[in-house]
Amino acid sequence: MQNSQATVLAAENVKMTFNTDTSEEVTAISNIGFELKQGEILGIVGPSGCGKTTLFNIIAGLQAPTAGTILVNGNRVQDASGHVGYMLQKDLLLPWRSVIDNVILGLQVRGIAAKESKTIAQNLINAYGLKGFEQAYPSALSGGMRQRVAFMRTLAFSPDVILLDEPFSALDSQTRLLLQADVMRIIRERNCSVVLVTHDVGEAITMCDRIVVITSRPGRVKSVHTIGIDPALRHPLKIRKQARFNELYEMIWDELGIQFAA
């Protein structure tokens, strides 16, 4: 949809094979390829165990792929170097740090002066609905708030690419809808480039510009769908009234469903 934009992330023929204890090789993913444009939200859906987390670990540089390459802004990813922001299902807030000190974690790792990073964090906190909670500790926050803080920690160091691995799946459905809407708004405002992994097909259609469907293990790209719904209509509650939403929803479920039967 935004083909004129620059490519920020490219995966080319990525393959990952694990050697398990039983000396049997497990190929988690094979021949995965896609591109992510600047400012795009790309969804990845696929059956459980198809290698989505493995793919993210490779993009973040936590694991080296067996074959293939990952390019971020045209540079090859070799190692974890903080070029991508990686947010997991668990919020992974440090319980001994206050909200603001959790948000600055990535900046601290980068050696940015305390004063500067606090300013950046405070601005995020003010802008995205946690004002007044900067000195609170994670144990005092609700699940939704904690995930919000984790998201701010990811935003704080302005990574080139943001990876979201089922970030809302641990939340109740109300909180989930609210957070989806907020995260979507923030991503658009800041023109972030995002890859979102989710089990929730509706969530993927709501939030993403394109969706990549992955087959069951070994994970390969089965199909790519362009959503093509006006971003203005993409509120989690409103979008469900669109004919296109239902069309995509059935199509993607079909593709996933066939794999379950096989």
Binding site: A60, L62, A80, G82, V84, G85, L88, L94, V109
Partner: peptide, 18 residues
């Protein structure tokens, strides 16, 4: 210490000492 914390720190680009 939960290995996901270690993974998170690594993804932030933290050294082992950090």
């Amino acid at each position: 210490v939960d290995s996901d914390y270690i993974r998170m720190m690594k993804s932030l680009g933290a050294s082992r000492l950090q």
